[in-house]
Design a protein around this nucleic acid. Structure first.
Length: 198
DNA sequence: GTACTGATTTTCT
DNA sequence: GAAAATCAGTACC
């Protein structure tokens, strides 16, 4: 089932954890690409590392809008990164999708990424957007309707953490930031080869 | 396998 | 003008 808007109004850290195991799909005619989310990072409202920390600007305005939408930002002159807006009011935050396990449209991903190695297709925030062809045009797009969607795991909702037969979740510090580096807001599925870094 | 470095552009702490 | 939630290539173990 498609994750409903209400899923995203929860606590940002819970959303980051519960997104693990869910499926991100991009449907574009015959080129559907999809992957299972295996790594996320949470960025809270009062978080010096968050892009929203210094207030609303032109590029981050989506972070101040309704939850359940995509926020795309361009970084280091090359890469698009995909945030999921979540929380409500003062608790609003964002979840950065950092890595997927490729599931659908793998040949298309290989072509877009310029490699056939499965573990290099979506193992990083810039890599997964390139593999699924997600760019700035999706900034503000909903994740519960339209071409971009996040689907819950196939079995019972509420059992994300068990759905892989006791799949363990690792919680640790975030990557690639220079502020609030000691906060354990990164989550990934233990042992998954598609995680960007151990 | 890890470690270092350059690329390239958008944004505004 | 500097910084940025990154990646790919190269060097070396």
């Amino acid at each position: 089932m498609i994750l409903p808007p209400s899923f995203y109004t929860g606590d940002t850290l819970d959303v980051a954890r519960n997104l693990l195991g869910c499926r991100l799909t991009h449907r574009e005619g015959r080129n559907t690409t999809a992957g299972r989310i295996v790594e996320t990072e949470a960025y809270l409202r009062q978080d010096p590392a968050a892009h929203s920390f210094h207030g609303k600007t032109r590029s981050n305005s989506v972070l101040f809008g309704p939850p359940g939408r995509a926020h795309l930002f361009f970084i280091y002159g090359k890469h698009w990164c995909l945030n999921v807006v979540c929380g409500e009011g003062d608790h609003r935050g964002a979840v950065l999708l950092r890595a997927l396990e490729p599931l659908e449209g793998i040949p298309v991903m290989q072509e877009r990424r310029g490699t056939v190695e499965k573990h290099l297709l979506c193992s990083g925030p810039g890599r997964l957007t390139q593999a699924l062809a997600i760019t700035g045009e999706f900034n503000g797009a909903p994740l519960f309707s339209g071409p971009l969607r996040i689907i819950s795991p196939d079995n019972m909702p509420g059992s994300w953490q068990e759905h892989d037969g006791g799949q363990e979740i690792v919680q640790t510090i975030r990557i690639g930031i220079s502020r609030a580096t000691d906060q354990p807001y990164r989550f990934y599925l233990k042992g998954n080869p598609n995680v960007s870094r151990r």
